[in-house]
Amino acid sequence: MNITVKLFAHFRDGRFKVAEHHYPSGADCRQVILALGFRLGEMGIVMVNGQHARLDQTLNEADTLALFPLVGGG
């Protein structure tokens, strides 16, 4: 299945801003995060289609996965 992956803040360093990647059907957020070379502990916010997601949430064809380090403002 094709997943649009968006990276933010310093996650972009040496990687990419947005890319379409192919993953085996049934992959979850955790598998994609690890496949991208991240440690799970680095994850601040994980969103699928604009909603907060758990690491074990299964992805579907054409989903957008957005990954943020723990950042904030206000």
């Binding site: 933010f8 803040a9 916010i45 943020f68 380090p69 723990l70 950042v71 904030g72 403002g73 206000g74």
Partner: peptide, 13 residues
């Protein structure tokens, strides 16, 4: 986070 990107990191989030 705040020292690097400032509060404006929130736009994309």
């Amino acid at each position: 986070g705040l020292p690097t990107f400032g509060t404006n990191v929130l736009v994309n989030i």
